[in-house]
Write a protein that binds this DNA or RNA. Sequence first.
DNA 1: CCGGAGACTTGTGTATACAATTTTGTTATA
DNA 2: TATAACAAAATTGTATACACAAGTCTCCGG
Lengths: 246, 246
Amino acid sequence: MSDLGSATLDAPPGEGAKQSRDAAIYQRIYTAIVERHVAPGTKLPEDTLAEAFDVSRTLVRKALARLAHEGLLTIAPNRGARVARPTVSEAREVFTARQLLECAAMPVVVEALRARDLQSLRRRVAREREAERSQDARLSIRLSGDFHVALVAVTGNRPLVQFLRQLVARSSLIVAVYGRSGGQARSCRDHGELLELLAARDAEASRDWMAEHLRAVEETLGFDEAVSHSPDLKQLFAAIEPRGAL
Amino acid sequence: MSDLGSATLDAPPGEGAKQSRDAAIYQRIYTAIVERHVAPGTKLPEDTLAEAFDVSRTLVRKALARLAHEGLLTIAPNRGARVARPTVSEAREVFTARQLLECAAMPVVVEALRARDLQSLRRRVAREREAERSQDARLSIRLSGDFHVALVAVTGNRPLVQFLRQLVARSSLIVAVYGRSGGQARSCRDHGELLELLAARDAEASRDWMAEHLRAVEETLGFDEAVSHSPDLKQLFAAIEPRGAL
DNA sequence: CCGGAGACTTGTGTATACAATTTTGTTATA
DNA sequence: TATAACAAAATTGTATACACAAGTCTCCGG
């Protein structure tokens, strides 16, 4: 039940297979969001996308609906879809959920881990290092997230993997909004560390390591700081008192 | 962050609010599946539903897509939607995921639990008992699942709650397929037991109780037995070796 | 009597058309 | 000049039409 040599067990992040057109569209937008080609808050008009993909709005809507269901988009009635801009509380909830799920999963991963899984994970870390070395930030982001998903995929539990995939994708949005420039470069070395613990079949240490890792990632975020661009203006200016000349 | 007096924190199972038409359709079908008015494997033709709800297929498709995304329906290309009929491995995965998530959540629940949460949960158990007493099997099923969701909802973690809601809904399908007539009536008394542990703020006992509870529920299922009706014949006969005469 | 080819029926996949709503731009009035 | 009312444009919501695939039935041949 855990054959996943390199794939992630569940369709969405899969790249190779011939898929239906709507799935391809979903895929493209998904990647664009997770790899941050489009910033949180960006409007995604149906017409525009329909032209871009050379299909009717029907298929675009289908893809958008799915992305919205996964929390990557916000769809407001009659106002269309925007790349989600997680609030601080939403962000905290996502990380809390990840803590809960990923830490609890580590013992199961240790239990289920086979030699080929370990090999596959090592290859992933190698790829991460490569992306890191070549300064490819977008690829690094993607691979780093994929690693966490692949880890849980070792358990062969599809619902779990699918859920974590959502959380990881949303994490990417969260980092995009609240991330500060410094401190994301060490996740790669970190992932390598975990593999040592897993190889030693040390469930408890793996769990603790994951807890610390996620805490560290969350640590680098600036939840208190100014929200980057295009915040809720009404609320913003209500909180800022006009002071001094003009 | 945990005001949910009686609601489940997340939209789908909410009943009261005025909602968009597509949401209402989703709701109706969702309830029909979870309360087992429609059996697993039942075909759900778009035309028929469109007539039933007096809308076009467009809205029906929207609702069906969402239900499929949540694993309650299976949509095969050009073959339409059917109420999902979980395989044995899918069923096991769902319960494993629940074990992982719900057990891990118990300490967090204990931490977050407030007096009003406890009150709300007690009211739920009371309602469960009432449904049990009045022999209303469908309501019992629904309330029993809702209890688990409401429990985790105490944490105020929306992604977690939404995910668990999916797992619980799928569990209902699983019980519909693999459940044996006896042994589901005690979950109500069980739930009351847990509340005692929670009230005592005993995180570990609560976790253990939940593990045992879920194990017991899974125990009542007959994964090994003949798959009720219309099994996968191809797979079935591939596994049975021709032996002896003929 | 059984099995297969082809027409027919049913139902889904996608595109397009139209209605409703929001947003933007303009003009009139205080 | 500032504000409000109104008009126009852009965009989404829903329905319908048509293309296509799958399933079914009939009829013919073996």
